[in-house]
């Protein structure tokens, strides 16, 4: 009972019934990509992408390697710019604001949009320091508050029970799957609205993969998730909508069930039936 009373004060930001004024006008569409083109120097990596990503859903992006799916997800928080010589045209509206515009501060964008990477990449620091890294750089210094964030984030990433007794140990001592969940916890610690996942299970064993997949289903209740995967079964298991990309273009975008059971495009059918890729 005490939990429910607390709940009221504690504002679940992602829930529309416990509203704050800033969140009420939140559009259902989180990311609206229009006519996006991207070049790495001479290479035309993304061609005329048009996509809408909806709140509190898991959107999976599939396609053969080199199709541009990783490039696209890295454009959504502008990490793609770490490669020199990247140029774009078109717009990506995040909550109504064009993130490709120069006035957009990438740091602000990335504070609201978290990212989980292909290879687990914890910092060579303790688990505790890994999770508090984000809150600290964003100015949260109170120890009691940080402790709370660490517990909540690690619980949110379903790894609290495994690491609660060794928070001060180096994160490198964990298994690959645990490392990846610590990375997810690190990402949750600053309470992003969207989580981008770039093939988060490709470096993990099957059991760890399953754990992360269950976690994703759980996280979807509170977060909008965009996940790139090379694994079609994974997309079918966890996503609400699926995008199929090929050679830098979006070939098909629809409800996951429909895309896998009744693809409209011949190329999608060929890909999901394993005829290429």
């Amino acid at each position: 009972m005490s939990i429910t009373t607390q709940k009221k004060v504690q504002i679940d930001v992602k829930n529309n019934d416990t509203t704050t004024e800033s969140k009420t006008e939140q559009p259902r569409v989180v990311y609206d990509t229009k006519d996006l083109n991207l070049w790495y120097s001479e290479t035309h990596a993304l061609k005329d992408i048009n996509l809408e990503v909806t709140e509190n859903e898991v959107t999976a992006i599939i396609g053969p390697s080199g199709c541009g799916k990783s490039t696209y997800i890295k454009t959504l928080n502008r990490m793609v710019e770490l490669v020199p010589g990247v140029g774009t045209t078109g717009t990506i509206a995040y909550k109504g604001k064009n993130i490709l515009d120069n006035s957009m501060k990438v740091e602000d964008l990335r504070t609201q949009v978290g990212m989980v990477f292909q290879k687990p990449n914890p910092f060579p620091k303790s688990i505790y320091e890994n999770v508090t890294y984000g809150p600290k750089i964003h100015g949260i210094k109170k120890k009691s508050l940080l402790d709370e964030i660490v517990e909540n984030s690690l619980r949110g990433a379903a790894i609290w029970d495994e690491v609660k007794d060794r928070l001060n140990q180096n994160a490198y001592g964990l298994s690959g799957g645990q490392q990846q969940r610590v990375c997810i916890a690190r990402c949750l610690a600053i309470e992003p609205d969207v989580i981008l996942m770039d093939e988060p299970t490709s470096a993990l064993d099957p059991i760890s993969t399953l754990k992360v997949e269950e976690l994703i289903k759980e996280l979807k209740k509170k977060y909008t998730i965009i996940i790139v995967t090379h694994n079609m079964q994974q997309a079918a298991r966890i996503s609400d909508k699926t995008v199929f990309m090929l050679n830098g273009e979006v070939v098909e975008f629809s409800e996951t069930d429909q895309l896998f059971s009744n693809p409209k495009d011949k190329r999608t059918e060929d890909y999901i039936t394993g005829r290429f890729g």
Binding site: N77, L82, R110, N121, C183
Partner: peptide, 25 residues
């Protein structure tokens, strides 16, 4: 390794924060 600074940038850290807290250590 580049993936360390990527993780830091991915959380909205600025360049100098990333250098000071991740790359230099």
């Amino acid at each position: 390794p580049g993936h360390l600074s990527e993780a830091s940038y991915g959380m909205g850290a600025t360049k100098w924060q990333t250098i000071r807290k991740i790359i230099l250590p």
